[in-house]
Simulated assay, not measured.
Amino acid sequence: MQAGLELVTEKRGQAIVLHPMGRLDNATATAFQQGVERVLAMGETRIVVDLAGLEYISSAGMRALLALAMQLRSRPQGAVAFARPAGMVQDVLKLAGFHQMFTIHATLEDALQG
């Protein structure tokens, strides 16, 4: 991944959990999308994005999250869930209306069950 963002993935039950850590902005959104493409290429259709490690998100980062959601919605059984946003990231997601478009879970466990 590019400087400023680390993307860790893990398999949890039937879902893949993406843990972006650092900044998701114009400089790192492409690297995030490339990581998502690798996961989708493996045939995964259920993804949880754990936002707890994300310190900053810009409009480019939000577009990357929306692109992920749109890709999954176009697949049979495709689903995306977001979990544990905090601080500035939570504020930006609320301002952008993410909480109206998606379920944003307070815990990772809730997101995995939902």
Rank of each mutant, 00 (worst) to 15 (best):
Q2Y: 07
A3R: 14
G4P: 01
G4F: 02
G4Y: 01
E6Y: 13
T9D: 01
T9A: 05
T9F: 01
G13L: 06
I16S: 00
L18T: 00
L18F: 12
M21L: 09
D25V: 07
N26C: 08
A27E: 13
T28Y: 10
A31D: 15
Q34E: 15
V36W: 05
R38K: 14
V39F: 01
V39Y: 01
L40I: 10
L40K: 05
L40S: 00
E44T: 12
T45E: 11
R46Q: 14
R46C: 03
V48M: 00
V49I: 13
L51C: 10
A52V: 14
E55D: 15
Y56T: 08
S58C: 09
S58Y: 05
A60S: 15
M62N: 13
M62T: 10
L65H: 09
A67C: 03
L68S: 02
A69Y: 10
M70F: 05
M70Y: 06
Q71K: 14
R73G: 11
S74R: 12
F82C: 04
A83D: 01
V89N: 00
Q90V: 06
D91N: 10
L93A: 05
K94F: 04
I104E: 02
H105N: 14
A106D: 15
T107E: 12
L108E: 11
A111E: 07
G114H: 14
